[in-house]
Amino acid sequence: MGVLDRLILGDEQWGRMSRHIIGDERTRGSSGRDNRMFVEAVLWIVRTGSPWRDLPDVFGPWNSAFRRFSCWSAKGIWHRIFAAMADDGDFEYLIVDSTIIRAHQRASGAKKGAEDQALGRSRGGLSTKIHMAVRGLGNPVAFRLTASHRGDVPQAAPLIAGLPAQVVLADGAYDAAHFCQIIADKGATAVIPNTPQRASRYPFDRHLYRERHLVECCFSRLKQFRRVATRFEKTARNYLAIFTLAATILWLR
Rank of each mutant, 00 (worst) to 15 (best):
I182T: 15
V167P: 04
L250S: 06
S127A: 15
W78N: 00
G125H: 03
V39E: 03
R237N: 00
R33D: 08
E115K: 13
A107W: 12
A165D: 02
V228R: 07
A170H: 01
F232I: 02
L222N: 01
T48E: 08
R201I: 13
S127G: 15
P61F: 14
A83R: 14
L55H: 05
V134G: 04
P56A: 06
R212P: 00
K111H: 10
K234T: 14
Y174F: 14
G60H: 05
S220Q: 04
A41T: 00
D185P: 03
A190E: 02
N35D: 01
K129Q: 08
V228N: 07
F38G: 03
R212E: 00
V58Y: 09
I77A: 03
L245E: 03
G60S: 08
D205W: 09
A170T: 02
F143C: 03
E12D: 07
I8V: 14
A165C: 15
P51T: 05
V215D: 04
K112D: 10
A114D: 15
W251L: 02
I182D: 08
A142K: 12
Q105G: 05
A157M: 09
H79M: 13
L145W: 10
H131Q: 15
P140K: 01
A190L: 11
P196C: 03
Q117N: 09
R135T: 14
I21S: 01
V134R: 04
F225Y: 15
F82E: 04
I183D: 04
T235I: 01
H104W: 06
E211T: 01
T99W: 00
C180H: 12
R123I: 06
F59A: 11
D185A: 14
F66H: 15
S220R: 02
W72A: 07
L126A: 00
P196K: 13
Y209L: 08
L55V: 10
Q166Y: 02
R237M: 10
I182V: 15
D57E: 11
R212H: 01
A177V: 12
D24A: 04
R121G: 06
R198I: 11
S200K: 13
R53Q: 14
Q155H: 13
Q155Y: 09
E40L: 06
M37I: 09
A118S: 15
I242R: 06
Y174L: 07
I95A: 03
L137N: 15
D57R: 10
K129Y: 08
H104F: 08
V168K: 09
I182S: 07
T146R: 10
R47T: 09
R16W: 03
D88A: 07
I242M: 13
A190W: 08
G89S: 09
A133E: 05
I249D: 02
A103S: 14
L163Q: 10
R102V: 13
A86S: 12
Q181S: 12
F91Y: 07
R106K: 11
D171G: 12
A161N: 07
V153E: 14
D34L: 07
A110I: 00
G49L: 13
V167Y: 10
V58W: 10
